[in-house]
Amino acid sequence: MKPNQKHISKQNNRYYDKIAADYDAMLSHNTQEDFLRKKVAEKLTSFLKEGTVLDFGGGTGEDLKWLLEHHYKVIFCEPSSGMRKMAMDKFPEAGIVFLENSQTDFTSWDETLPFQEKVNGVIANFAVLNCILDLDLFFKKLTLITAEKAEIVLLVLHYNLKKRMQMNFFGALKSLNGAKPMNVKVAFQGEKQLVYLHSVKSIRKATAEYFEFQSCELLKEEGFSLIHLTKK
């Protein structure tokens, strides 16, 4: 049976609940983290001076500090209850809107909106997009909660073909036609997660109807691409 997005999301939530307690410590050993987080912050703040920002897949809330420093109103969307609790504990009285479990499921946003206002900006930092198989569905749902001209900043994994073939030779070959992304399995204490390696071309295609593709900055040494979109 082919996995659907709801099944994938449940699997991801179990995985991130499992690693929640260790997540910040794991990131602290990543010397690139501060650099990458600064790049995302600089990109968003250069185009959006004020307004409401959705921190989509916000993890343990490491981006909340700079979002609040720039005086944005923040809506925090983290499906993992374990990760979300850590973020809530870090910023208990900051006026952040923390979405509850059912509200974080973007696949259901056309049935019940998670909030009524339209956000002016969205960040999806540290490969959040790589946890989503169906990009067409994600960007279609994102249009429901974003204002006209909303700024979207995505930090997505970038592995060149040689590295992808070293990781999964046949998966890399199948991904060349662009029909579906190559996936990589990640495991932690018995829980598994599938990470999807979307090409920039596939992201462009998925966003074309609703968003203007503004730029893609390849951060080759860090293994990421920094993508900027604007809502049409």
Rank of each mutant, 00 (worst) to 15 (best):
N177H: 09
I145F: 04
V119A: 10
F35P: 05
N130Y: 04
Y16K: 03
H29Q: 14
S28M: 11
T146Q: 03
P92Y: 09
K2H: 12
K201T: 14
Q32K: 13
M1T: 09
E62P: 00
T52G: 01
I123E: 02
K6I: 09
D110E: 14
N13C: 12
N177R: 13
F106H: 03
K2N: 11
D17G: 04
S202E: 15
R84N: 05
K201I: 11
V195W: 03
Q116K: 11
Q11S: 14
G178E: 07
M182P: 03
D136H: 13
V153G: 02
T31H: 11
A87Q: 04
K220S: 12
T104S: 07
N168F: 10
Y72E: 06
C216V: 14
C77G: 01
F47A: 09
E117H: 04
Q189G: 00
R164S: 04
E217F: 03
S80Q: 07
N130R: 04
T207P: 01
R84K: 15
N30F: 00
F211V: 08
S108P: 00
E93I: 00
L142D: 01
D110V: 10
G51Q: 09
F115E: 08
D89F: 01
L135T: 10
F169M: 10
N30Y: 07
D17A: 11
W109C: 08
L218E: 02
Q193F: 03
T143R: 04
K65Q: 15
Y16A: 04
S202D: 15
C216I: 09
N130L: 06
P181S: 06
F138V: 08
E191A: 08
L64H: 03
S46M: 10
H70G: 06
G58S: 11
H158W: 10
E212T: 14
S46G: 14
N125F: 01
K38W: 00
R14F: 09
H71N: 15
T45K: 08
K85I: 08
Y72M: 11
S46I: 04
A124V: 03
Y16H: 09
L173P: 04
L219Q: 02
K231E: 03
E100M: 13
L142A: 07
V119W: 01
E93L: 08
G82W: 11
Q103Y: 06
A87M: 08
L36T: 05
Q11P: 00
K205M: 09
W109L: 10
D34A: 13
P92N: 08
N183W: 11
L137K: 06
S215N: 13
Y72P: 02
F35T: 13
N125A: 15
L157V: 12
K140G: 05
L154R: 03
M88G: 02
F139H: 02
K231Q: 13
F211C: 07
F106T: 06
M165D: 01
H198C: 08
Y210F: 14
G190D: 06
E148R: 04
G59V: 09
R204N: 12
Y72D: 03
